[in-house]
């Protein structure tokens, strides 16, 4: 079984991503979790590079590995809470664990059954990473949807800001006193 360099690299990075994700979820310390998940996001970004999608990889690195990780880190700092000790590795509940394992097994089995489709045509020489094609597809072909999505995201962010504010209404005070 011969494996070319790109595949080999993918396998390594993929294993790294899985391990990083697993460590993030199993870590006892939430700061460690955030660090691991940053690694997880970064390794997925590398996967995108390997898939000849450098724009996507950059976006992944910037948004996920950068922004989201830092956002999480800030949140953890604000809250200053440790992960509950009982949620450590030993605290795994068997039924849900088995459930997740089953779903994983089914998905892996399904992956094996997918026929070997031919890969898509390569990007043109003038645009080796298809960035302009992507831009065209994203902003011209689906521009309307993107705009709509933007509004949705914006309103969601406004809602998030509202939620995160320090509330000083009497109702909130009452809830806190309870």
């Amino acid at each position: 079984m011969s494996v070319d360099a790109a595949t080999l690299a993918f396998l390594l990075v993929g294993i790294a991503a899985f391990l990083a994700g697993a460590l993030a979820l199993l870590s006892r310390e939430i700061v460690h979790t955030v660090i691991y998940i940053g690694g997880f996001f970064a390794s997925l970004g590398v996967v995108y590079f390997l898939l000849s999608a450098p724009f996507l990889g950059l976006l992944q690195l910037a948004v996920y590995a950068g922004a989201v990780t830092i956002l999480l880190m800030f949140a953890v700092m604000v809250i200053k809470r440790r992960i509950f000790a009982r949620e450590a590795v030993l605290g795994i509940k068997a039924p849900t664990f088995i459930l997740a394992l089953l779903v994983g097994a089914v998905l892996l089995d399904l992956a094996q059954r997918v026929p070997a489709y031919a890969s898509a045509p390569a990007c043109p020489a003038s645009d080796p990473y298809c960035v302009s094609l992507l831009a065209q597809n994203l902003f011209l072909d689906n521009g309307g949807w993107l705009l709509l999505l933007g509004f949705v995201m914006l309103s969601a962010l406004a809602g998030a800001v509202h939620l995160a504010r320090e509330w000083r209404t009497p109702a909130v005070r009452k809830i806190r006193e309870d």
């Binding site: 595949t7 993918f10 390997l50 898939l51 998905l107 992956a111």
Partner: peptide
């Protein structure tokens, strides 16, 4: 154009 098999991607 990529040489990474689809199965590996889907498995990951």
């Amino acid at each position: 154009m990529t040489t990474i098999p689809l199965v590996d991607l889907l498995s990951l």
